[in-house]
Amino acid sequence: LKTAGVNTTDKEMEVLHLRNVSFEDAGEYTCLAGNSIGLSHHSAWLTVLEALEERPAVMTSPLYLEIIIYCTGAFLISCMVGSVIVYKMKSGTKKSDFHSQMAVHKLAKSIPLRRQVTVSADSSASMNSGVLLVRPSRLSSSGTPMLAGVSEYELPEDPRWELPRDRLVLGKPLGEGCFGQVVLAEAIGLDKDKPNRVTKVAVKMLKSDATEKDLSDLISEMEMMKMIGKHKNIINLLGACTQDGPLYVIVEYASKGNLREYLQARRPPGLEYCYNPSHNPEEQLSSKDLVSCAYQVARGMEYLASKKCIHRDLAARNVLVTEDNVMKIADFGLARDIHHIDYYKKTTNGRLPVKWMAPEALFDRIYTHQSDVWSFGVLLWEIFTLGGSPYPGVPVEELFKLLKEGHRMDKPSNCTNELYMMMRDCWHAVPSQRPTFKQLVEDLDRIVALTSNQEYLDLSMPLDQYSPSFPDTRSSTCSSGEDSVFSHEPLPEEPCLPRHPAQLANGGLKRR
């Protein structure tokens, strides 16, 4: 031991701790050491302190810390799992109470259905409401065949629209698609105040090879029609059969078919879209009749726009005509997947739907009320060519290029400059510069009032120099000039209409 001194630092001082000593042992101690050379000694003081209470040693090893962490984590996880189980049990009790009230408590799974309603004014964004509309049932219905791709499903009954099956008599087919079909039928007692009145209706139903998605689409269309409500110039929902059998959606019946066929059937002799010497046209149409058709469609679209509904496929083929020549817009409630459109795929009647699409819908897939206005301009062109085919002879690839360059279709022969300028306004490259349906209704209403009933179509000018029955994407082998976009001569082996020498072909294109 070194004694503290003047020249001794703290580091040089050493402390020796002795245990089991008493206060009597306190004092100075000297350590002597010697050898043959000499003797040396050092002294140190022993200080006795009071004994401290002994405390248990605390484990601070890493293993002990890990044990604490794992135990704490396990406890927290157990609490979370327990909370989830309690929540599930409570929510399951509430669901079972709800389904027992709906009398569908025996169901095993559900079809996820979404009601898609486009509400954005400047995009294709949609509001999806995840309302459960249908659930599968283990119960089988008697007297009705089961669908191959869709098991029997039981829908919640809506008393406002439900019609008993025994009050619906199915008739002949009116048309069909890939998985759905429409048949003519007679409904008894659609009007609650007149329970014995028989009404001719159209009934939409699924085919035998339909899938769950097809069922989902049909129900979504029905729900959309319920929500949009009734208007004179749209196909209205009349009722539905949802209980004890396949789903039947009952809508208004339009006896004169779609507008395109309606116009073609009323072309003057010699100007029909397909040469037929025995062709006997229906009643002749006046200019006022054509303007009235456009006015009614505009009114229907104005109503749909007021309900925040974007059609996305407005064309003469999707406008139906009733016995009283009332125009009714159809298929506005269809669920369309705008992100998976095949631009080169034709519709069932051979038309390319892209020829009715606005550039922003075609290139950027942006659907708005103003893109519907563009389609309405093409529909106007169809009306005043009596069912002509837009951009005849123009392949899709060429159409993309022409639209980007600002080309537009030429004025039809039997169309006034004012109406043609309306078409051109609908085809404005900037969507915000196109008229609204409200403005179109006002303009067409004024034109109808000024147009005489006696103004019949000028038969001295050809209505349509093209054969719409030909595929639109076909290139002409005998077109006049180098560019078949601006002219389209008859093919030698097929009868077509004579070309008027002083008139540019109706399907020609102009640059805006």
Results as ranks from 00 to 15, higher is better:
V321A: 11
C478G: 15
M224I: 15
S460C: 09
S452C: 09
G377W: 06
Y343F: 06
Q181R: 04
N453S: 10
G245S: 11
A335T: 02
L352R: 02
Q243R: 12
K355Q: 02
L206W: 07
Q454K: 10
A254S: 09
M357V: 04
V183G: 15
K401N: 10
I235V: 12
K355T: 02
D313Y: 01
M224K: 01
M423K: 00
M327R: 03
L459R: 12
D209G: 05
P468H: 11
T348A: 08
Q439L: 08
S287C: 08
D425A: 10
S286P: 07
T242P: 14
V430L: 08
L237P: 13
D425Y: 10
L215W: 08
G175R: 06
P269L: 15
N236T: 15
L399V: 13
G189R: 03
T199A: 10
L379I: 08
Y275D: 08
G333S: 00
Y262H: 06
E272Q: 05
N233I: 04
C178W: 06
G300S: 03
R446L: 03
A210T: 07
L174R: 03
V183E: 14
D443Y: 11
D410E: 09
Y303H: 09
W356R: 01
V394M: 03
F363V: 05
K256T: 06
R408L: 01
D364H: 14
I329V: 11
L440P: 00
G180W: 02
G177D: 02
L450W: 05
T477A: 12
S292C: 10
E323K: 07
S255F: 12
P392A: 03
S413C: 10
K308M: 06
K213T: 12
L247M: 12
D458N: 07
K204N: 06
E405A: 09
A185S: 04
P353R: 02
A240G: 05
P269S: 07
Q433P: 00
M422V: 09
P462R: 09
R267M: 00
Y253C: 04
Y343H: 13
W374S: 07
D337N: 08
E176D: 11
C309G: 04
Y456H: 14
I235S: 10
N276D: 09
R312P: 01
T242M: 04
L402R: 05
H369Y: 14
V326L: 14
Q243K: 07
W381C: 14
E261V: 09
N196I: 14
A330G: 08
C426W: 00
F363S: 07
R197S: 04
H369L: 15
E283K: 11
M423V: 00
S287T: 06
A429T: 08
T211P: 13
L190V: 03
S286T: 11
K230Q: 12
A315P: 01
A254P: 00
Q433L: 08
H311D: 00
G387C: 03
D191G: 06
E418G: 06
I228S: 08
F332I: 01
Y391F: 15
E282Q: 08
G180A: 07
V182E: 01
S389T: 06
V319D: 00
D410A: 05
L218M: 11
V430E: 09
N196H: 06
K288T: 05
D443A: 09
I447F: 13
F470I: 11
C415W: 00
M227L: 13
A316P: 01
E482G: 12
P435H: 00
V394A: 03
L334H: 03
Y295S: 14
H339Q: 13
S413N: 06
A185V: 02
D445H: 14
A254V: 15
M225R: 01
K345Q: 07
L259Q: 00
K355E: 02
Y344S: 02
F376I: 05
H339Y: 04
C426S: 00
P195S: 08
G270R: 12
K345R: 13
I383N: 04
K411M: 07
K213N: 10
L285I: 05
K307R: 03
W427G: 00
H428Q: 10
G270E: 13
N417T: 12
E360Q: 01
V373M: 13
Y420H: 04
V448M: 10
E397D: 13
D214N: 05
R434S: 00
T477S: 10
V249G: 02
P435L: 01
T451N: 10
H279Y: 07
P277A: 09
D372Y: 04
D324G: 09
P281Q: 09
E221D: 15
K232T: 13
A429S: 08
G387S: 02
T199I: 13
I234S: 07
G350V: 02
D443H: 05
A210E: 03
V203L: 09
V291A: 12
R351P: 14
E223A: 13
I234L: 09
D337E: 09
I338F: 02
F376C: 04
S306F: 11
M421K: 05
P359S: 01
T451S: 08
S479Y: 15
D166V: 05
E382A: 01
K194Q: 05
C426R: 00
F470Y: 12
I228M: 06
N318K: 00
G257D: 09
E283Q: 15
R317S: 00
K226R: 10
D342G: 15
M205K: 08
H369R: 14
V485A: 15
I447L: 12
I341L: 12
A449S: 05
A202G: 08
S389Y: 08
A449G: 04
C478Y: 07
V373L: 04
V169G: 02
G171D: 06
I188M: 12
N453H: 06
Y344C: 00
S292A: 08
L440R: 00
A254G: 02
V378L: 01
Q243L: 12
C478R: 14
G393C: 10
I447M: 08
R266P: 01
E405G: 06
R317K: 01
E283G: 07
D244A: 06
L168R: 05
P277S: 14
H407Y: 05
Q284P: 12
L290M: 05
P195L: 06
A315E: 00
C293W: 02
G387D: 03
H340L: 08
I329R: 15
N280I: 12
C309Y: 15
E212G: 12
T199N: 12
V441A: 05
Y295D: 12
P246H: 14
R266G: 12
Y248S: 07
V396A: 05
Q181P: 12
I383S: 05
H311N: 01
S220P: 04
E482K: 15
A315G: 00
R167I: 06
G175A: 01
T385A: 04
E176Q: 14
V485G: 10
R317T: 00
P468L: 03
L380M: 12
I310T: 00
S484A: 14
P173A: 09
S255A: 15
S476Y: 13
Q439K: 13
K200Q: 13
S467F: 04
D313H: 00
P395L: 11
P195R: 06
D472H: 10
C274F: 11
K328R: 15
P277H: 09
D464Y: 08
R312Q: 00
R197G: 06
N233T: 14
G377E: 02
K346T: 15
Q454L: 07
V441M: 08
H428R: 10
E221A: 03
C178R: 03
S467T: 13
A361G: 11
L380V: 05
Y253H: 09
M327I: 11
A305P: 01
H279N: 04
N325I: 12
E302G: 07
G245V: 04
L206M: 06
C309W: 15
A429E: 05
C478S: 11
A315S: 02
V198G: 09
K411E: 02
I310M: 00
K346Q: 15
V249I: 14
L320R: 00
M409T: 00
I338M: 08
T473I: 05
V321E: 02
Y273H: 12
E418A: 11
E482V: 12
S292T: 11
E405Q: 06
E272V: 10
E397Q: 13
K232R: 13
L206S: 04
D337V: 15
K288M: 06
E455D: 07
D214V: 14
S484Y: 15
T242R: 14
L184W: 13
I250V: 07
L263V: 09
L184F: 12
M357R: 04
L285V: 12
G245C: 03
P359L: 07
L168Q: 13
P462H: 08
A315V: 00
R424P: 00
I341V: 05
S389F: 03
Y303S: 13
S469T: 05
K232Q: 14
E282A: 11
